[in-house]
Design a protein around this nucleic acid. Structure first.
Length: 806
RNA sequence: GCACUAGUGGCGGAAUUGGCAGACGCAACGGACUCAAAAUCCGUCGAGAGCAAUCUCAUGAGGGUUCAAGUCCCUCCUGGUGCACCA
């Protein structure tokens, strides 16, 4: 009898071996085939590792370990996305420097990750808060600035009227401040913006050349929201002024019965003397300022608005006078901040028109029957034909769009316009714990970038990390840091005191891993040329639209500037689902359903935790935690361990197990590649069930099992390998091959149906002729065919026979 | 609200992409071992009817296409993620 499986001893022992031998180090030998596996680096929060973290990490650890056994030079790095709000808030509350908080949190995270036995190359660890790192974050910003992609603009921020500080969206709960419950309003502030919209088309087109899961591509495209429409100028009746609108349905211009402008539209202040009810406008605007964009555009809510008295517009195609309204469902941030309303063919306009009794004119009819415009708008483009539209009548919607666009351009009252839902990236934060923006503002010279040799611009020490009560960052209070001489003219100037958002550091970290200690460049051309692109990047679905787009944008910019060598940063992108609490809800302290991975590692072992997280369910779906499931995986590993009692000599697979061995190798190999870890593990469970049934296995079979299981459970498999007296280590073995011929059983069992219902099964040779199979099948169910007429006989080779009979 | 996504036994989930629904695991139940319990091992395990062979129903609900539907189409219901200053 072999001794008990003691995970405490075994896991420590092998982690020590890996630390000393460092076998998972990525080599700088650029002649080997490379594989770059990347997981999203964590934010080192004060709570320590969450059981959600090991899910993606284990997945790519499995792939990385397998690739090494397949002969690749693998880069599988880890680092820390350590700037951020929670650390700063913790620092404010406990009066500890955020750098100290970060250091402690990183240490804890690192120990936890090491206890899980990941094959990270720790020599390439990066930390976004390290000045040697953020020097290059600032450097990229300067490049963006010099390329004209960074600019300042007045933008609204969330402002707590009671704390008198700017708040992150997350800190605003139901319109009030999360800390004090005070009222939150939008306050306008001049902020740094990055022109991601300039890369909108490239970000869409680039998706054709990468291998992302389909829903990630779809979601990115929808987020960018490219739409082809037209801008149309409407003249105001009372003054010589045009009101420009953006529309995706210029074909419906004849149906425009009123206009709506955003409450923030500049035209309102310009003509406030003309607007007889301007006080109503002002009070409406104040109410709108309290709502977020997404509250404003909610369809279910009752539409509100104010009709401007004293101002009206002229529809340019039929010269009809139409009223102008303001309403909060029109956003200043999309299009021109003004729309032409066509209530007959737009849902929101329809609701608005019904509420305020505005005329609804049909200009599109359906080719598939009557349209009832008293109930809802008719928005179907595919079956639409134009009516009541002068020269557009009888055209299809598609043709009408083309004709009216040409018409607008000929008459000079409008033009084609492509619009994006994507907005430029608000890059300023009025916070301490972020990268300082390396810009000096001089009254004479404007915005002056710091010289590159002055980077990194270090975060200065401050008394308090709390934002100041005029909405500036804490840096603004350090006058001797803020007040500098202009590098251009030598006159008095001031530093930018806003810092960068957390997204900045994570937008290029994958480049730094290729050459993390380089002091001359963000990474050397040679390193980038060899390692990039990332071959496989896994991360959460929640990062699909922000982090993934931001980092692709920066990468594309760096490519255009010739600093990186590939147009796309990531060749393949996959996503994992969340791990929920036992009750099926998101894990959180307040719900009391948080599982600490340290406890699982201690009670069951890292190998069990890894196996369980891979076995728990479909990798891309959210799953609930189950302690009993953990036990089941521990039991599986114990059974693998106890196979030691059954092993007999044998250099080759035994005859009776040969097919099963080859099937398992095939299944596990392909399932690891397609993220089906749960079925890969199930296949290995089936295999050991076969061994137990036979009450024996030979050494060759055991060794193959250990290699297949090693990426999932690296500690226990090394230990058994050693106990078996095998040479070397599992991690340096070659990944097993399978023979397709040997995965196929000589006979197959197939089902026999009558009219699609199963009536029995038959065993046939795998290559039996159709005639023979049908005869055997009919023989097998002859009693049930009696008195029936056979109409049709279907045979799907290796699958099923279906007899259609009456 | 908009975008994406999912719904299968008591539970987590499989199903070669239109071909035997429930692999594998958990829980439960019965048995062996034990003074006993745990662990372990063996067995049963979607629902209903029947002594039984067997039959009927069953993949969120309803309809459709097909020899055949968890898988394809239409309508509806419910859950998850994101919504730009959490990351």
């Amino acid at each position: 009898m072999t001794e008990m499986y003691n995970h405490h001893v075994i896991e420590k022992k092998w982690q020590k071996v890996w630390d000393e031998k460092n076998p998972f180090k990525a080599e700088d030998d650029y002649s080997k085939p490379k594989f770059y596996a990347l997981v999203e680096f964590p934010y080192p929060s004060g709570q320590g590792l969450h059981v959600g973290h090991p899910r993606p990490y284990t997945a790519l650890d499995i792939v990385s370990r397998k690739r090494r056994m397949q002969g690749y030079n693998v880069l599988f790095p880890m680092g820390w996305d350590a700037f951020g709000l929670p650390t700063e808030n913790y620092a404010i509350k406990n009066k500890i420097h955020p750098a100290v908080v970060t250091k402690n949190n990183v240490e804890r995270f690192k120990n936890q990750l090491k206890s899980l036995g990941y094959s990270f190359d720790w020599e390439r660890e990066v930390n976004t808060t390290d000045p040697d790192y953020y020097k290059w974050t600032q450097w990229i910003f300067l490049k963006l600035f010099k390329a004209g992609l960074a600019y300042k603009k007045e933008m609204p921020i969330n402002w707590c009227t009671s704390c008198k500080v700017g708040l992150a969206n997350e800190e605003v709960v139901n319109g009030v401040c999360e800390r004090c419950g005070g009222e939150v309003v939008r306050k306008v502030k001049s902020e740094w913006m990055l022109k991601i919209t300039e890369y909108a088309d490239k970000l869409i087109d680039g998706l054709n050349d990468v291998d992302y899961i389909e829903r990630v591509k779809t979601q990115q495209k929808n987020w960018i929201g490219r739409s082809e429409g037209a801008e149309v100028d409407f003249k105001l009746k009372q003054v010589d002024e045009t009101l420009r609108v953006y529309t995706t349905r210029p074909d419906t211009l004849f149906g425009a019965t009123y206009m709506v402008v955003s409450p923030e539209h500049p035209l309102l202040d310009k003509y406030k003397d003309l607007i007889e009810n301007f006080d109503e406008v002002v009070s409406y605007r104040e109410k709108a300022a309290l709502k977020s964009d997404f509250e404003r555009t909610e369809l279910v809510k009752e539409k509100t608005g104010v009709c401007l008295k004293g101002i009206s517009a002229i529809n340019p195609v039929n010269d009809k006078e139409i009223p102008v309204w303001i309403s909060d469902y029109v956003l200043m941030s999309y299009g021109t901040g003004a729309i032409m309303a066509v209530p007959a063919h737009d849902t929101r306009d329809f609701e608005f028109a019904q509420k305020f009794n505005l005329p609804i004119i049909q200009v599109v009819k359906s080719t598939e029957g009557e349209v009832d415009l008293t109930k809802e708008a008719f928005t179907d483009v595919a079956t639409g034909t134009m009516v009541n539209s002068g020269f557009l009548d009888d055209l299809s919607v598609e043709d009408a769009k083309e004709k009216i666009k040409n018409f607008l351009e000929e008459k000079g009252i409008g033009h084609r316009k492509i619009n994006y839902k994507l907005r430029d990236w608000v890059f300023s934060r009025q916070r301490y714990w972020g990268e300082p923006i390396p810009i000096i503002e001089c009254e004479k010279c404007g915005f002056v970038p710091l010289k590159e040799e002055e980077l990194p611009l270090l975060l200065p020490e401050v008394e308090s990390y709390m934002p100041t009560d005029n909405g500036e960052s804490p840096l603004a209070a350090i006058t001797d840091w803020v007040n500098v001489k202009c590098p251009c003219c030598g006159g008095d100037a001031k530093r930018e005191t806003d810092t960068m958002p957390q997204w900045a550091g994570s937008s290029w970290y994958f480049l730094r891993y290729t050459d993390p200690k380089n002091t001359e460049a963000l990474a050397s051309k040679e390193a980038l040329n060899y390692w990039m692109p990332v071959d496989w990047y896994n991360g959460g679905m929640e990062h699909t639209t922000l982090h993934l787009l931001y980092s692709r944008f920066w990468h594309k910019f760096l490519y255009d500037e010739n600093y990186v060598t590939t147009p796309e940063p990531y060749q393949r992108r996959t996503s994992h689902g969340m791990i929920l609490g036992e009750n099926g809800e998101k894990m959180s302290k307040s719900r009391g359903n948080v599982i600490n991975p340290d406890d699982i590692v201690n009670d069951y072992g890292a190998d069990t935790l890894r196996t369980y997280e891979m076995f728990i369910g479909a990798f891309d779906l959210a799953v609930s935690w189950s302690e009993n499931g953990v036990k089941g995986c521990r039991r599986f590993l114990e059974r693998v361990w106890k196979l030691q009692d059954l092993v007999v000599d044998g250099e080759e697979y035994s005859k009776e197990n040969e097919t099963k061995m080859h099937q398992t190798i095939k299944k596990v190999s392909s399932d690891f590649e397609s993220l089906k870890f749960n079925t890969a593990i199930a296949a290995m469970m089936e295999l050991i069930n076969v061994f137990y049934k036979a009450e024996k296995l030979n050494k060759a079979e055991y060794k193959t099992l250990l290699i297949l299981l090693n990426p999932v459970a690296p500690h226990i498999t090394e230990e058994i390998w050693e106990k078996l007296g095998c040479e070397g280590y599992v991690y340096e073995q070659t990944w097993p091959e399978y023979d397709e011929e040997k995965t196929i059983e000589s006979t197959v069992e197939i089902a026999v149906q009558i009219n699609g219902k199963i009536k029995g099964t038959i065993n046939i040779a795998k290559d039996a002729a159709k005639e023979d199979v049908l005869n055997i099948a009919k023989e097998a169910i002859s009693s049930k065919l009696e008195g029936k007429n056979i109409i049709k006989e279907i045979y799907v080779p290796g699958r099923i026979v279906n007899i259609v009979a009456k």
